[in-house]
Design a protein around this nucleic acid. Structure first.
Lengths: 193, 193
DNA sequence: ACCTTGTGTGAATACTTATTCGCATAATAT
DNA sequence: ATATTATGCGAATAAGTATTCACACAAGGT
């Protein structure tokens, strides 16, 4: 068997874990299934991670830095608020389409109820994400691109709910998420402009 | 030990299961934890249900007939579309506040990925629910209570996403769901009127 | 009173899951 | 070349989970 550095193996393991979650759900995210998916022995997983909790933490980190990090970067840019919002929205959808297990994972029992530390990390990330979007919406309202009556925070939560629900529904119904997302985005524009 | 009829025990078991899901999540929904919560032996669970799948099916049925049934009744009434919508929204929120595990359960792996039959039952119920709300929204648009530009179906999905996300977020953050729901509803009105 | 039926349980079974251990071997430094 | 270290794995362990079984006993009809 070829040997690789822990750095490389860690990435392989995380990718394998994301694959398992996407295809079989959080419940099926066992050391055994990760090992199978990554093409290595279970024991070798423990060579590179302290245990399952460490893997979950790494997953949460990956999700956090991917989705929320990208959004923060977009929000900090110099385009119009509506452009930023659209980019954030479709980036998020694209990310979920690529890693279908993520929305499930973020709100799974294992995270939210099983592991307090992880729950805190995850909810803080989500709160930061909500605030980022809230800020963009507030700018849009201020500049007159969005209706004056809407509340930035509640609208941000509505937008995130839309994404989350679409992801869960499309996974369940096996329908075209990108297509659904486009229709929802157009309707969202009609609601906020 | 006092003996009760299967009819009564079934209800006790379902309530115990809902309790477990609400407090500890779907992952913790084991025969053992249900038995503990219901105050009976594990073996006795099997006296009243064929197995765990039967319990999950009964849970799905309970959720379906509670939330979606109530919505259908409201939608069939004779009030204004906006009144109906408000009733459906807050009924749903109230139900989730009472049974916090339900949103988790409805989209859990066990349902969606673990058991095809159950997944079909659940997604059909959700689709019917979406259509009910879509109908009410369409009526509201037709009557001029809601903006002409919005699409009934996409707006219905947005509303449901709002509910789902609020439920998950409030469970995670342990925040006041009813309060959040009120703010979201007011903002929703501002978006659709 | 008695017998049948339905309801109750503790213990046993088979399986899954997370984790550890001893040992093998590739990579690397000396 | 050789010693050391990091990486790899099969097998064992311990705990949890769903399910079954043999047996206990209460309720209700006769």
């Amino acid at each position: 068997m070829e040997k690789k550095s822990t750095r490389v193996r860690k990435e392989e393991i995380i990718q394998a874990a994301l694959d398992v979650v996407g295809k079989k759900g959080v419940r099926a995210l066992t050391i055994c299934s990760i090992a199978d998916s990554a093409g290595m022995s279970e024991a070798n997983i423990y060579r590179h991670f302290d245990g399952k909790d460490a893997i979950l933490l790494a997953l949460a980190d990956f999700v956090g830095s991917s989705v929320m990090g990208a959004a923060a970067t977009t929000a900090a840019g110099s385009r119009t608020p509506l452009d930023k919002l659209e980019t954030i929205f479709f980036s998020h959808i694209k990310f979920i389409a690529e890693y279908p297990g993520v929305p499930r994972f973020a709100f799974s029992d294992d995270i939210q109820l099983g592991h307090p530390v992880l729950a805190k990390v995850m909810t803080e990330r989500i709160s930061a994400y909500v605030e980022t979007i809230t800020g963009v919406l507030a700018a849009g309202i201020k500049e007159g691109d969005l209706r004056q009556q809407i509340s930035p925070r509640e609208t941000a939560l509505t937008l995130l709910g839309m994404i989350q629900f679409t992801a869960l529904r499309c996974t369940a119904l096996n329908c075209d998420m990108t297509g659904e997302a486009k229709k929802l985005w157009l309707n969202f524009l009609n609601m906020v402009r």
